[in-house]
Design a binder for these strands. Structure first.
Lengths: 212, 212
DNA sequence: TAGATTGTTAATCGATTAACAATC
DNA sequence: TAGATTGTTAATCGATTAACAATC
């Protein structure tokens, strides 16, 4: 079991720490203080120390943090030491773009299959990853380990497909469909990527800036 | 000029209100109370009223909110009544996927050109949108209105290209590159879409769930 | 040891929720 | 008018920042 629930605000910042520590490693930096890191990252040193201490004391008084050690620990916290198999539902432009994106694999996220309803795509391969027909979904999920389902299909079918996947035992969704998934199951986790909402937020800030 | 700064937490929720109101419109619902909306959206009625009242009193006591009116008002707040021209820098899989995504146009976001360094892509068209070579960028920006630059190129070049675009007068970035843009100019706005960080957050929650 | 920097407690700030008077 | 529901103030909760004793 885990420590008392850590807020999502903290979790959202962890990947960014991970990224900066990775950059420091590339630069050959061996140790760093919360203060130096705070200057780089433009957050307060206090926040860095508070955030990290949610998970344990990774630093040492008078020394700071060992970059490699902290990098590895955050990786573990984020589950990057485990392999995650992803299936992509919807082999349209976005689905194929995800399948083509090699960088995810370095983090342990491996896309193992795509699914679509379009018969023209049947058997086609993206970077060696096969596109299956959606009606093969049940069989595939029974025969292969699947940790995450990425939903990149039109929103009209997203919720129903998610229900079906929950029934097949899928516990995690990376949802690109512009709709809220209606999942009651408490131990299913959903991460939304709503591109148009992100664009609208940008648009708000553009307009605000113009008028100020 | 604008009212006192509204927190980004509020802004982030506005597109979701907009989406739900759109759905209500589709269903032919004419008016809705904060309470009914709160049930649908799974947020408190209090938060809905507080959020909306940042921008003005859109409701009426004893009646609730007129769906069409509120929808339109939020659209204006988000700047969806104006057209936004987007250029996409990096015509790889993600860049092309964005160009292919028709839905953005309904919201007023029009992708007008793509840019890449790969000479093989020169002159190719995605849904009628031409791919230009990156060295035509300056000329293009002088001859055409550009409101937003979407950065979908490798992170190594993202920051430098952003600087160049700022020099060309671009004031808004939709950044998909896994790097922080280093822009000091106060009236340039950046919206980040860091897919791998989103995936790591999901992964954290998967691991947490397993262990609880 | 002296200096540096963490881990952690306390103080502040901001965001969310509750309550209710105003009013349609 | 009576009932419903907003707009808004006050109370609570949570997250961020500041401060400093512990300790390497």
């Amino acid at each position: 079991m885990e420590q008392k629930d850590i807020s999502q605000a903290v979790i959202r910042r962890m990947p960014r720490y991970y990224r900066f520590l990775g950059e420091l490693l590339d630069e050959g930096v061996e140790r760093i203080s919360s203060n130096d890191l705070s200057n780089r990252m433009q957050v307060t040193a206090s926040q860095i120390r508070q955030d990290l201490n949610n998970f344990g004391g990774f630093g040492q008084q008078g020394y700071g943090y060992n970059v490699q050690f902290l990098y590895d620990e955050i990786g573990k916290i984020l589950g990057l030491n485990e392999k995650h198999n992803i299936i992509v539902i919807g082999a349209g432009n976005l689905g194929q773009a995800l399948a083509n994106y090699v960088k995810f694999e370095k983090l342990g996220f491996v896309i193992t299959a795509l699914f679509d309803v379009n018969p023209e795509l049947k058997g086609k391969k993206i970077r060696g990853i096969e596109i299956h027909m959606l009606d093969e979904l049940d069989e595939y999920c029974k025969d292969n380990p699947v940790d995450i389902a990425a939903l990149t299909m039109p929103k009209a079918e997203a919720d129903l497909t998610a229900q079906r996947l929950v029934g097949l035992g899928i516990k995690a969704f990376w949802n690109f469909a512009h709709v809220d998934l209606n999942i009651s199951d408490q131990d299913v986790v959903v991460e939304n990527v709503h591109l148009s909402e992100s664009l609208m937020q940008l648009s708000y800030n553009i307009v605000k800036n113009k008028n100020s």
